[in-house]
């Protein structure tokens, strides 16, 4: 069992957890992830290690509640425990001094981009970050990014905060302003990553994306996480998760992530019944009350 030291909502439905996992804290590098199983009988889901503290023996993960497991995880609070945490898995990000490096995060993708932004800065890059969200409340980790990046550009789709528009538009403006950009890392929903790839392709800017297929073991044993990159099959959990954006078959990735759509609904419905999830959802939006209202789901 892996104890949760602290848990707080960063945005509606996006929660940050600090978890005791000293070994992983010591080992992990930017770009790596863990697979967790929240309870006995739970499924194995991958989450990026957003940060770690070696002296405290903790890692930080940031999860967006989108389905059965992540929604249930987001009801966990400080003092609760996670059944299994395994890692660090996957290849670390390839870090070097590229010159000017732009890290782009869409929604919870910012959490995944953050550790790599830190590493890019440490490697001597002029580091820019563009962090997007639907509206103001969905822009996360702005303060953290400001601490490590030379420039930070929040963007919102509805213009409620920062730049009004998509992260791609902001990136294109930067490029067109004549700035020399040497490296782009983009993490977020698949359509966003695809759009970034198309934005940088004409300019030949080296662009990496972190893929998020459905995984089981995370060690290369099942092949469930396979994707097509450069017309070849890769196992994202061991060959990635970061790949050259210009070579990824995004349509296939999006398609494969729909494999269990019907089943996920079933699982969620079951969960809804169990938890009277309507009430839960309301509480989720009133993040500050979570400590008072949330009770841990049976484990």
């Amino acid at each position: 069992m892996y104890k949760i030291r602290s848990a707080e909502f960063l945005a509606p439905n996006i929660k940050k957890f600090v978890i005791e996992a000293p070994k992983i804290a010591e080992k992990r590098k930017a770009g790596q992830f863990v697979i967790i199983r929240i309870k006995e009988g739970g499924e194995r889901v991958p989450l990026t290690i957003a940060d770690s503290d070696i002296s405290e023996g903790t890692i930080t993960i940031i999860a967006q509640g989108i389905g059965k497991t992540t929604k249930e995880l987001n009801t966990f609070q400080a003092g609760d425990s996670i059944q299994d945490v395994v890692g660090p898995l996957g290849k670390p990000s390839h870090i070097e001094n590229f010159g000017t490096a732009v890290s782009i995060g869409g929604g919870v993708g910012t959490a995944i981009a953050y550790p790599t932004a830190v590493a890019l800065k440490q490697a001597g890059n002029h580091t820019i970050s563009i962090i997007g969200g639907r509206s103001r409340e969905f822009v996360i980790l702005e303060d953290e990014m400001r601490k490590v990046c030379d420039e930070v550009y929040p963007t919102t789709d509805d213009g409620s905060y920062g730049y009004h528009g998509f992260v791609t538009q902001k990136l294109k403006e930067l490029i067109d302003s004549g700035r020399k950009i040497d490296f782009v890392l983009a993490i977020g929903p698949i359509p966003m990553m695809k759009a970034i790839a198309e934005t940088t392709r004409p300019y030949g800017i080296q662009t990496m994306v972190s893929l998020n297929p459905i995984m089981v073991d995370g060690t290369g044993m099942c092949g469930g996480c396979r994707a097509t990159v450069d017309n070849k099959t890769v196992f994202v959990c061991v060959d990635g998760p970061e790949f050259d954006a210009h070579k990824v078959d995004f349509a296939l990735l999006a398609q494969r992530n729909k494999s269990y759509l019907g089943d996920e609904k079933t699982a969620l419905e079951k969960q809804t019944l169990e938890q009277k999830s309507r009430e839960e959802e309301k509480k989720e939006h009133e993040c500050n009350y979570d400590k008072m209202f949330f009770s841990k789901i049976s484990s």
């Binding site: 009988g41 739970g42 499924e43 059965k68 089981v216 269990y260 089943d263 079933t266 699982a267 079951k270």
Partner: peptide
Amino acid sequence: MKAYKFPEYDTPVFN
């Protein structure tokens, strides 16, 4: 992962 007991267990498999 005991998908044969889905949704009692959380992991799905092709139906």
